[in-house]
């Protein structure tokens, strides 16, 4: 049951992603990439959890995962903001 549920969510989310992202104009494709980089930093949720439940090896793997994911979250959102700030009208 779990499997069917999450597959349903996954498939529907791909359709949502497709709808939303095809509307992003080419001029914003670089911020789109860096912004979606930041969003893939959502793995931080799993990383935080694994520092607890992972046992000793898991804890250390979790720590590295937290570092990696935080780099993505901070770096991704900040650099996207830096770029979007520059897009101005005449």
């Amino acid at each position: 049951m779990d499997m069917i549920n999450i597959l349903t969510v996954f498939i529907l989310a791909i359709f949502v992603g497709n709808e939303v992202i095809t509307k992003v104009p080419p001029t914003l494709h670089t911020p789109l990439m860096s912004g979606s980089n930041a969003i893939s930093g959502i793995a931080i949720v799993g990383a935080i959890i694994s520092t607890k439940v992972g046992g000793e090896i898991g804890t250390w793997l979790g720590l590295v995962a937290v570092i990696f994911a935080t780099i993505n979250v901070f770096g991704g959102f900040m650099v996207t903001d830096r770029m979007l700030k520059m897009f101005k009208r005449k």
Binding site: N37, G46, S50, F68
Partner: peptide
């Protein structure tokens, strides 16, 4: 950054494997 994102996901799955 793509690399860090992929790496973080793999590490979480690995931690889950060991636990």
């Amino acid at each position: 950054f793509n690399g860090f994102g992929g790496g973080a996901s793999a590490l979480v799955a690995a931690a889950e494997f060991y636990s």
